[in-house]
Amino acid sequence: MTHCERLSERMPAVGNGQAAWSAEELAHLAQCADCAAEWRLVRAVAGLGAQPAIDPAAMSARVLTRLASAPREIPVVSLAARRRRWVWSLAAAAALLLAVQFVPTGRSDRGARPAGVLSELDDLASSELETVLAELSADETTGDQRLDDLSTDELEQVLQDWES
C-alpha cells in the first residue's frame, strides 16, 4: 500500500473525529495535491447535511409511544426458510424422478423406471409434480413478498399443510 493509499484509508476516520493526522501525514498532505484534494472532499462530506431538523428527545418519545402499541415482531425467516428447503428438496427429488424416467435403459420398455426407485414419489401423479414445479416458479418471482403478507400463525399453518 502506497503512502497515498494509507492516507486515503484513514481520511474518513480523521474526518469524523475518530482519529488524528500524525505530523508525517500532515507533511504529506501539504505536498501531495492528490491527497489534499481527496482530504478536502472527505472533510466537506463529513460536515455535509449538518443540523438536520430532528429533535432526538421528541423522536425518541414518539418511537417509544408507537412501540407501546405495536408488539415486537417475531422473526419469520426460519419458517420461510424451512418451507423453501422443503419445496426445494421435493423439487430435487421430482427432478431426479423425471431424470430416471427418461434415462435410456437400452431395454424394450424404454422410459420405464427401475422398480423401487423413489417409491414415495412414484405415488405422485404427474399433475401433482406439475403443481410442485409451478409452485417453484411462483416462488422465484413472488415467494418472499407473498410470505411476508402472512402472519406467523398463517405461515405456520401453511407449513403444517405442506409438510403433512
Binding site: 438536520p52 408507537r66 422473526p75
Partner: peptide, 19 residues
C-alpha cells in the same frame, strides 16, 4: 422527509429487534 424516515427506521429497528 428526513425526520419521518429516521423515526420510521428506529421504529422498525426496535420492533424487529429480535431479528
Amino acid at each position: 422527509e428526513v425526520e419521518d424516515l429516521a423515526q420510521e427506521a428506529f421504529f422498525k429497528a426496535f420492533r424487529a429487534i429480535d431479528s
